[in-house]
């Protein structure tokens, strides 16, 4: 039996908002450890992996590992009907009926909404994602997640030439990270320097560079990842020319959301 409760719907609402526009289906793995979610976009260029440890829930009971594929668009729709302070209950029964029940209960007026989701197939996930050693990455950038979101918005507004495939080039050189994109009639570069942590200890931009690195990505994907900012104050971007880039948001003490993206290669 699986029975989970969260006294505030916000966390789950934010998770769904952070993944549902780019990923249509996800695999949810429930175990004694917690919930592990994985999804891949249809072109297999981006992957999201989420961990919410059992401690993230107010009540967590999972006496047998359970893996289910769910449609994220439908879930996002249901969660948009939930208020931030609704109590969520997630239940799946022993009889393997291939459905999971999400219940939203308003603590104020006692109204209860019940959604049953059928399991769907998730082709290609879950994958075994190893933690590559730090030395495999040429550069790491940590910055406030709100700043990263602002950068993505600026680049999108400039790079929006009606072409869905606007490319952003991220390059790290010494103590600077540059975001570069091309618009219809010009280019745009946003330069972020490492900030002194003394002035604003809570919002540092930190750059660790082993080698200069410059990689091209789809801006559309990066823009979508930046929605992870509702889950964490900081984002860490790990860059390597040999591995997928990782955009990681730590969720308090209880887990993380990691987006993996492959750079574009010129043919």
């Amino acid at each position: 039996i699986l029975e989970l409760r969260l006294v505030q719907a916000t966390l789950f609402k934010n998770v769904l908002e952070a993944i549902s526009d780019l990923f249509s289906k996800a695999n949810f793995d429930f175990s004694g450890t917690g919930l592990e979610l994985q999804a891949m976009d249809t072109s297999h260029v981006a992957l999201v992996a989420l961990l919410l440890r059992a401690e993230a829930f107010n009540h967590y009971l999972c006496d047998r590992d359970l893996s289910m594929g769910l449609n994220l668009a439908d879930m996002a729709k249901a969660f948009r009907c939930a208020n931030n302070d609704d109590i969520i209950t997630i239940k799946a029964e022993e009889d393997w009926s291939d459905t999971v029940t999400f219940t939203f209960e308003s603590p104020e007026d006692g109204e209860i909404s019940i959604f049953d989701f059928d399991f769907v197939g998730t082709n290609g996930v879950p994958l075994e994602i190893p933690e590559f050693p730090e030395s495999e990455y040429q550069a790491k950038v940590r910055m406030p997640s709100a700043k990263f979101m602002r950068i993505c918005k600026k680049l999108s507004s400039f790079g929006d030439s009606g072409d869905r495939d606007t490319v952003v080039i991220i390059s790290v050189d010494k103590e600077c990270v540059n975001f570069f994109t091309r618009g219809k009639t010009g280019t745009s570069t946003i330069v972020c320097r490492q900030t002194q942590t003394v002035d604003k200890p809570k919002e540092p931009t930190l750059i660790e560079m082993k080698e200069q690195v410059s990689l091209a990505f789809d801006l559309r994907y990066m823009n979508s990842f930046s929605k992870g900012s509702t889950l964490s104050d900081q984002v860490t971007i790990s860059l390597s020319s040999n591995l997928p880039a990782v955009f990681e948001y730590k969720i308090a003490e209880t887990g993380y959301i990691r987006y993996y993206m492959l750079p574009r290669i010129e043919e």
């Binding site: 981006a46 992957l47 190893p130 492959l262 290669i265 043919e267």
Partner: peptide
Amino acid sequence: GKTQLRMEAFYSFN
């Protein structure tokens, strides 16, 4: 240019 590689090239199936 196009991305030629897919995620599966880096990560294995469970």
